[in-house]
Write a protein that binds this DNA or RNA. Structure first.
Length: 856
RNA sequence: GCCGGUGUGGCGGAAUGGCAGACGCGACCGACUCAAAAUCGGUUGUCCGUGAGGGCGUGUGGGUUCGAAUCCCACCACCGGCACCA
């Protein structure tokens, strides 16, 4: 048995191409000369702002980062070549739980862990050759940054957009903190997977629901520029329903109860009312009922509260509920509707109470059938919706309507949710659904018992967190129970030293244990007061960071409005789809708030958005626990940055997942060695006259110039790499068996390859550029324009079809006359043979590409 | 249940109304070499045929068109979002 000897294939095998030496050389020069710094105020070129979602410093970079920042780098480099002043910054989303958990595990300071990881990732980005502007680095955990989170919070508070309320909140029992709705996925904590429970707490919220309509409607502007999927997810998440609020008198209660309904047209069909058992309203209605009801209600409430969200939300559970022995009065007909408490009604949607119309709502019908409540049909879904309105006898009994009887929900168990003609509904009779909704809404408004209304699935954004490693909430709780802002001259309100603090999760913020830190004075009276012990959700940090890059060192304001006018909004944004309804919704919200405050002149932060796919392995997501990790620094060491970059860019469309098993770093390395070699084979000088070069090769070059910018704009990076491979193959062939290494077209083509390859393999491209006799940096060289005369082929292959099948091809001039082309096609030997005497009944000629004959 | 997306060789993918499978991976054959690696050249959708050539082929079925992977309709499969949201 022979032994396998490890060989440095990269250095030896590729015939002199040594990616690691090249990489070190150019990274050092970039570091010294800072060529990718964005142009300043004096720069008159048009501007482009390219941004990839900033990383969380969770250890070393991984393959997902390799992909994400490769794509933003490709776009940034392409725009530089096309004459733009490009801003491509990098920073770190450096507050958050993992730092804290790691610190708890090791008894260390989250700061140390965080900044050590940032240093490691910075080094990773440098050795990967990403063309960031390193002068604008920010870390959200720096007081210089989070000071402006506190500014934002106070601005929001001034405008009534930050407020406190007591409410049942999502509580992660593992992380021991509250979570925003967006951070609960399938009833589980987005971060750790623990089953989320409800807890009633007083917390800080941002009033994102005030912006629900704008967040929804403005998605239309992004159509075509954002992934369809993300727009869809945001629309679903906001979940606007249009209908009416209807006020019901309650017997024995002074105030009316309002319900929301998308089907106010069915108001005459309401036969009972249901309130959410965990709502204040249910508790109050039960409290004023009999002792027996109170007891039954209490038992039911306890049972309901024991359920997790997962249990409560699972569909096709049998309906449960209790009768509260209270009655509501239907405003349109005075009927008494029994009021029930049932957990299929949610406390925090609409008004926590519904009018139940069992005939026309499946849930209400299920409940009615379970508790033997009446069902009254008020929409004849069998009636035609077009033509004359059928005459309905107002005294007609349902039993008289044969058609309706056969589909009576009370017997079939299927609610009639479709459109139809109103019946048993007084003034609405005969109307269609849409007209009935309009009519009843008017009537309710006229009588003061209702009004048009909208409801949203979206809830206000809970931003308090009971954890240490985040932005302290800049508010003071005074002795008299007031809550006042920390005065501006005392900002930033810095986190205390973590040493000596118990960071372990215990359900309240660790800051509460920092006595010196917690005690402060009431800025109005000087009396002693307490700080707010909670920190902000880290999604607050990332909701506006793209603005901070515009002037990251500014100590006087969060961002410079003049720079915002120059650079913002972001022209090209890229990141994973996992942020579709978290970061991207919050950033849109905060941008609109900043617009309303007059700080920015745009309402959407990210003009175009791309979601890159994930890097997976063997069909499943990489994870430490599964042990199927492909490590970034190992791949980098094995193949070099350029091969890694080319392999990833070539692996497939940006949006698709890339299985590492299908990614060929060795293939990429081979290609790069071939490209590097042709640059060294060129023997002509830089001042040769290209026009004297081989025309066929020149056509290849100019097709490249014609095609590549468009392909980059469409983010078809894999196709651009394929085109470069074709070009390299064509040059190789020209050198070896055609025009020869001295031909000007060989130089022209090789220069084009170097200039475009810069997007994918910047180190190799610089090395090629140098070999071709130029000064650094190819990364800053403007791309050439295609020569139109070289784009028009002289001869093309025309396809000749008979009855839709290709039967022959002929070489013709690109400027061939259609009549002449048809003549040539008819005369073609293969066509004559294939026709076998059949007559051509029709000929379609699309010169110079197609002739299509039909024979029938 | 509602809404949306996707479906192409052994594999990743290309082609958005005009030669399906560009480019690459893998595989096979050859040149160079004592040999191997690297490099270079060739073959590679599938079936029939010695060959020339022909049949079939982009999830399935239909349609539009001289011509469909591409447009339309229905269905199937997979993936994703929302879901007792009134």
């Amino acid at each position: 048995m022979s032994q396998t000897v490890p060989v440095d294939t990269a250095a030896i095998a590729e015939g002199g191409y040594d990616p690691h030496a090249i990489q070190g050389k150019w990274q050092e020069r970039w570091e010294q000369e800072d060529p990718f710094r964005a142009g300043g105020d004096e720069d008159t070129r048009p501007r482009k702002y390219v941004l990839a979602m900033f990383p969380y410093p969770s250890g070393d970079l991984h393959m997902g980062h390799a992909e994400n920042y490769l794509y933003s780098d490709i776009v940034a480099r392409a725009w530089r070549h096309r004459g733009y002043n490009v801003l491509h910054p990098i920073g770190w989303d450096s507050f958050g739980l993992p730092a804290e958990n790691a610190a708890i595990k090791r008894g260390a300071d989250p700061r140390e862990w965080t900044y050590a990881n940032i240093a490691q990732q910075k080094e990773g980005f440098r050795s990967y050759g990403v063309s960031f502007d390193w002068n604008r680095v920010l870390h959200t955990s720096d007081p210089e940054y989070y000071r402006w989170n506190q500014w934002l919070f106070q601005k929001m508070h001034e405008r009534g957009l930050a407020y406190r309320k007591e409410s049942p909140v999502n509580w992660c029992p593992n992380d021991q903190t509250v979570l925003a709705n967006e951070q609960v996925v399938d009833g589980q904590c987005e971060r750790c997977g623990a089953v989320v429970v409800k807890k009633k707490l007083t917390q800080w919220y941002f009033r994102i629901t005030d912006y629900a309509d704008r967040l929804l409607d403005d998605l239309n502007q992004l159509e075509g520029s954002w992934p369809h999927k993300v727009l869809q997810m945001q629309r679903n998440w906001i979940g606007r329903s249009v209908g009416a609020d209807i006020d019901f008198e309650i017997e024995g209660r002074a105030e009316k109860v309002t319900v929301f309904s998308t089907r106010p047209d069915t108001l005459h069909g309401a036969t009972f009312m249901v309130v959410a058992p965990d709502s204040d309203l249910a508790a109050e209605l039960a409290a004023d009922s009999s002792a027996e009801v109170r007891e039954r209600f209490q038992d039911y409430l306890e049972a309901v509260q024991k359920q997790t969200d997962i249990e409560r939300q699972s569909t096709d559970r049998p309906k449960t509920g209790v009768f509260l022995d209270r009655f509501a009065i239907n405003p349109v007909n005075g009927e008494r509707l029994p009021i029930w408490a049932a957990d299929y009604v949610l406390a925090d949607y609409g008004h926590g109470a519904v009018m139940a119309v069992p005939a026309h709502d499946q849930r209400d019908l299920d409940f009615a059938r379970a508790f033997d409540l009446p069902v009254r049909v008020v929409v004849d879904t069998t009636a035609p919706l077009t033509g004359a309105i059928p005459v309905i006898d107002p005294d007609a009994n349902l039993e008289d309507l044969d058609t309706i009887e056969s589909i009576d929900p009370a017997t079939t168990g299927v609610a009639l949710v479709g459109d139809g003609r109103m019946i048993n509904s007084g003034s609405l009779d005969g109307l269609s659904k849409r007209n009935a909704i309009a009519r009843i809404t008017e009537e309710l408004a006229a009588s003061g018992t209702g009004r048009a209304s909208k409801s949203y699935r979206l809830r206000d954004w809970l931003i308090s967190r009971q954890r240490f490693w985040g932005t302290p909430i800049p508010m003071i709780h005074t002795a008299d129970g007031e809550i006042v802002p920390v005065p501006d001259d005392q900002l930033p309100l810095r986190l205390p030293d973590a040493h000596g603090l118990d960071l372990a999760p215990k359900g309240t913020s660790p800051l509460g244990g920092a006595d010196d830190w917690m005690s402060t004075v009431d800025p109005r009276t000087g009396e002693s007061a307490r700080r707010d012990p909670d920190t902000m959700d880290t999604f607050v940090d990332s909701s506006w960071y793209y603005m901070r890059f515009l002037a990251p060192q500014d100590a006087t304001q969060p961002f410079d409005p003049a720079q915002a006018l120059r650079w913002a909004p972001v022209d090209f944004y890229i990141g994973g789809v996992e942020h579709a309804i978290l970061h991207l919704l919050y950033a849109r919200f905060i941008t609109k708030v900043l617009f309303d405050m007059g700080y920015v002149d745009f309402t959407e932060p990210f003009t175009s958005l791309i979601n890159q796919g994930m890097v997976i392995l063997g069909g499943s997501k990489m994870s430490k626990s599964k042990g199927n990790l492909v490590l970034f620094h190992e791949e980098l060491a094995a193949h070099g940055a350029d091969a890694l970059r080319v392999a990833l860019a070539f692996a497939g469309p940006v949006e698709d997942d890339k299985d590492w098993a299908d990614v060929s770093t060795t293939g990429a390395q081979k290609f790069l060695a071939r490209a590097w070699r042709i640059a060294h084979d060129v023997t002509s000088d830089p001042d040769v006259v290209w026009a004297e070069g081989d025309t066929a090769l020149r056509r290849v070059t100019h097709r490249l110039w014609a095609e590549v910018p468009g392909l980059i704009e469409q983010t078809k990076f894999n196709v651009v790499v394929a085109r470069l491979m074709e070009a390299v193959n064509a040059i190789r062939k020209a050198i070896d068996t055609g025009a020869g290494p001295a031909d000007p077209a060989v130089r022209e083509a090789t220069e084009a390859v170097a200039m475009i390859l810069d997007l994918f393999a910047p180190h190799t491209a610089e090395e090629m550029w140098e070999a071709l006799g130029y000064d650094r940096f190819v990364g800053l060289v403007p791309w050439r324009q295609p020569d139109a005369t070289l784009l028009v082929e002289e001869n093309v292959t025309a396809v000749i079809q008979i009855d839709g099948k290709v039967r022959s091809t002929i070489e013709v001039s690109a400027r061939v006359d259609p009549a002449e082309l048809e003549r040539a096609a008819r005369a073609d030997e293969k066509i004559v043979r294939a026709l076998a005497g059949r007559e051509i009944t029709r000929a379609i000629v699309r010169a110079p590409k197609v002739v299509s004959f039909s024979t029938h």
